[in-house]
Design a protein around this nucleic acid. Structure first.
Lengths: 254, 254
DNA sequence: ACCACCGGTCGGCCATGCCGACCCCACCTG
DNA sequence: CAGGTGGGGTCGGCATGGCCGACCGGTGGT
């Protein structure tokens, strides 16, 4: 495969840099952060600004991400076939389970949330569509790790970050869990990412049985678990929903 | 101002092209659509794919937008100061008004929705964050047109598209409405975008009193209007919310 | 008043990305 | 099954487009 276009790769790196740091960044910060000459960084930033991918604060001259990214991100969702098919199933699942539902796909070294149904009560919740979850410490992630070789490859050898005392950080333990996931057909994560939160997830396949994503139900340990384990009825609901979405995608052809 | 980086502008054009067409596009379609040589288009697409901005369907070889855009779009929202300040006020406004609340900023020739609070009932609603609304046919748009010279410039001379019989399509009529908006301090749009839907909007300013966005309450004509005009209490709520957000941004310094 | 550092510009050199011809494969089509 | 068509993808040579480092003008701190 021939090489990549230099200026484009650099532009992407700049966008990621701006997305990473919470605050706005100055021209010099960007340039030194990526080891570029100031003039080079400026040229790229200028173009990105013209295209709307980057905005500049008139006072400080510092740069931040631009609105066009939001618009394009929305367009990504509009085209996303998995998400479109899953919308109604996710809704039903949330209602039946009485808990939050996430829909995630593999993206780089994490799970990207492409759909999110609020827990059906009136508490204030923030939409997490577009955010990333760790592969090794969530139910969504463990499903993808278990079935998608690419995901396991991306993750590398660990040890990985521990978010709680229960997070699995060692490769051997994680691979054992993945084997269990494949055997049972579903994954759980009880207080492995956040204290007090437990989740169950199941795989979604496309028409050729390739793993394309996962559904997950997530909620307080007190309501999701029973006697230390995830409630069987929840597991059943999640697996049924996953099968329904897969069927919708055409997985029933075999 | 020196010129833009060619390959970057082209890459942006490709992304917009992919965002525009609802379906996936092939290499040749992209190339001819933008008047590029196939090899050139391929090089850019290859790089965009490596960076995650574009994905390729393994079967058809066709291209679509990539997940990285969703992630970056989310990062844009995270950093967005106006949105962060407005979150809680928008929530209160929706609850008080019993209607949908939108928060919009000027972007190119339209209003980009950066926040959306669902109408506080249990009907199914789709999140419109990241979508665009027309400047000339929405309350949000008319506020921005009235106060932001850039917006008026972007819009050009018309006549503009009519979405309903009540849409304002002529420059003279629209400019008159903008004058009225400036005089009253708020804008309305009754069945100008969608039949049966009416909205009220007010301006949000930053610390230097520059227009940075607008808040809007939107709902069925039957509940929003009274005797052909928008209910005064709603207007008051919206204007109060807009002032509160502006104050939060530091507009009180004068 | 000075200096340090900021964002921004400029011009020359040369690596870089552009182009058009070419390849291979899948799918029609007669 | 041969031939044709159009798909995505590759390649190499030419020249152009973008990179770099030196250079501005303004600003805020000392």
């Amino acid at each position: 495969m021939p090489g990549a276009i230099q200026s484009l790769s650099r532009a992407a790196a700049i966008l990621r840099l701006l997305a990473g740091g919470e605050r706005r960044l100055g021209l010099s910060e960007v340039a030194t952060g990526l080891g570029l000459a100031k003039g080079t960084a400026h040229g790229i930033l200028r173009t990105l600004q013209q295209e709307g991918f980057v905005e500049q604060d008139p006072d400080s001259g510092k740069y931040q991400l631009g609105a066009e990214l939001l618009r394009l991100g929305q367009s990504y969702l509009d085209v996303h076939e998995l998400r479109a098919r899953a919308l109604v199933w996710a809704d039903d699942l949330a209602r039946a389970a009485g808990e939050t539902v996430y829909l995630g796909v593999l993206h780089q070294r994490g799970v990207l949330v492409v759909h999110h149904v609020f827990r059906p009560d009136d508490t204030r919740q923030v939409l997490e569509v577009g955010s990333m979850q760790p592969l090794h410490a969530t139910a969504l992630g463990k499903v993808l790790l278990a079935y998608d070789p690419v995901a396991r490859g991306e993750l590398g050898d660990g040890p990985w970050e521990a978010f709680t005392p229960r997070t699995v950080t060692e490769p051997a333990a994680l691979d054992a869990q993945c084997a269990l996931v494949r055997e049972r057909g579903w994954a759980d994560a009880v207080e492995e990412t956040w204290e007090g939160v437990a989740s169950v997830a199941a795989l979604i396949q496309d028409r050729r049985r390739n793993p394309v994503g996962a559904v997950c139900v997530s909620g307080a340990v007190e309501t999701v678990c029973e006697g230390g384990a995830v409630r069987p009825s929840l597991v059943a609901s999640v697996r049924t929903a996953a099968r329904a979405i897969s069927r919708d995608l055409g997985a029933h052809r075999f």
